[in-house]
Computed example of a mutant assay.
Amino acid sequence: MSEAGIDSVALTRTGYPVMVGKFWAKDEDLVDGIRYTRCLPGRLGETPESRLEQEVARAMELVDEFDPHVLHATTDYRNALVAQAVSAETGIPWVFEVRGLMEQTWIASHRTPTSREAASASQKASLVSAREGELAAQAGAVITLSQTMADELERRGVDAGVITVVPNGVEKSLLDQDLTPQGARNRLGLDVPPDAFVVGAVSALVPYEGHDVLLHAVSEILHSSHVSQVVRDRLHVVIAGDGTAAPSLIALAAELGIQDRVIMPGRVPREEAKFWVQALDVVVVPRLDLDVSRAVTPQKPVEAMALGRPVVVSDLPALRECVTNSRGQICATLAPAGDPSGLAQAIVDLADSDRRRAALADRAHQLASERTWLSMVRRYVAAYDRAQWECREGAVGGD
């Protein structure tokens, strides 16, 4: 944001990152030029309410030091509660950025359709949904990732006029990377044949991401007499990342008899993640057809497109929007969600044609060039201006 003339400082939630095992965390960190300040009280509050109060107190100290024009809270609603409280105390306008739907992510984390149905009908889901909608409706401006998300927020009572859509962006430097798949594999020491055709993902391994569908699709290809022997001999899968679904994916690969074609390196260092993407001939985002997948756009497809890789995504509203450029052109291959056969066909079609992959990668790269962070920041500026205007109008109306 500094390139656009915006100075910012971030406050992380009370107890973070100590609460996730980083016991020697510093009071501050500098990440990508952004100062992250911690809320690490000598004694952690015993209740969620007391921890939020500690965060408000720390935020007030930062307000005195930094003198911000706008308070910017990101998902989930607990951060919005802090921003709202500080705004009420100081008169500084606040913005709520909704980057996910907390209750839908929680529902999607359940492994079986039965448990997801029970979670969806639970009081927790309805209360969280209502609280997030209520807070978004009270913010001076709302920012979200997609029109799909904006439509959902409207259904929750947020005025469409206060919502600004800011799609996931990419670092401009990614657009200049030209490492070939083989070059990336050499750099990583990836053990696949020189002529391998590698599909896969670099992602959190959670059930709703649908990586089991990818493994079933690959199994279909490898065992199909209708697919050329060349494609079958060359096909390999890389799924990099970690999460609750990792053990079941490893077990599934063995059950399908394709473990010799599957590489799962686990969590990879942040600075190496782009090389794992570049090692792929095709990046696959096989999300399941769940509410969270239909509404929330992931970051990974646009990063893969910036790196010049053709992408296959599930044909769901948020993912279609994610891969559609400003001229309305879809810049990825769409595959039916949850359908291994449909995904298998999409992979085979790309494996069969170097020209098709190159054309798709070129369109994808052009789309990513529209979504650099610098261009996205201009939309944030518009939202900040609106929040400040709303705040001034409210003050005038209250006189």
Rank of each mutant, 00 (worst) to 15 (best):
G157H: 01
H216T: 11
L319W: 09
L135G: 11
A346D: 10
W276D: 06
R371L: 07
T112V: 07
D64F: 07
S293G: 12
A337C: 07
A130H: 11
I221L: 03
S203L: 01
D176W: 01
D352K: 06
A121I: 07
D339I: 09
R156N: 12
P17V: 01
Q259P: 01
R58T: 14
L44C: 09
S248H: 12
M305W: 02
W373T: 00
A346N: 08
E132Q: 13
L62F: 03
S120Q: 08
R156P: 11
M376T: 02
A306S: 09
F96A: 05
E209I: 00
S326G: 14
H226F: 09
G183Y: 04
R355T: 14
L71F: 10
P317W: 02
K124D: 11
Q138M: 08
V162A: 07
V377Q: 06
S375W: 02
G342D: 02
M149D: 06
G91R: 02
L153M: 12
V262Y: 07
A137E: 06
V198L: 14
R99N: 15
L52F: 01
P68D: 04
A136M: 04
Q388A: 15
I239E: 09
T144D: 02
S8C: 12
G140Q: 03
P207K: 00
R78I: 11
A332N: 12
P207F: 00
L307P: 07
R355D: 15
D242S: 15
Y77V: 08
I330V: 15
L135N: 10
T244M: 11
D195I: 06
R58S: 13
E53M: 04
A346L: 08
K22R: 14
E152F: 05
R78L: 15
S326V: 02
V296T: 15
G394C: 04
G133A: 10
G5P: 04
A139M: 06
V268E: 06
I250E: 14
G5W: 13
V292R: 03
S375K: 04
A254E: 15
E3A: 13
